[in-house]
Amino acid sequence: MFSVVRTIWYVLLHMFHKRITVQYPDEKPYLAPRYRGRIILSRDPDGGERCVACYLCAAACPVDCIALQATEDPTGRRYPEFFRINFSRCIFCGFCEEACPTYAIQLTPDFEMGEYQRPNLVYEKEDLLINGPGKYPGYNFWRVCGVQIGGKDKGEAENEGPPVDIHSLLP
């Protein structure tokens, strides 16, 4: 019984506490860079699309709101033919970013994407692709992987030896 009275008293004292509400939108809250908001597709430092259409984000997505189709340019560089995120289903869990092997898909500190029409929440690649590397400057998947693309021949990736001459008889 006493605890009940004490509780009431303590709650009453909250009258004199500072309010913690942030008066959004008059006042914008601080969002950390790793805040999980609107999803973007980034570019590598050389300006190329980072996404290699590996489908891992789509597989990781618990609400299955990512759909894409892989294709290749004539030099063998793989990229998404289309890349669609249905933000009316997205739960901003960030699994896609975790799964992405190329730092292409990233969540940004922006949550102001309300719409009156659900179809407007379906973002295509044009809506997602930004003009920079986002949170991870410097990384370029194609400099690491062994596939030959335009501008990078076999053996020219990081940590690769020159292509083997299979006709050589030297041991």
Binding site: C61, D64, I66, A67, N86, R118, V122
Partner: peptide
């Protein structure tokens, strides 16, 4: 069971 994209593959036609 890991089939992906169910809620996005046709979203451009109808959400």
């Amino acid at each position: 069971h890991r089939y992906s994209g169910r809620t996005a593959m046709l979203a451009q036609i109808d959400v």
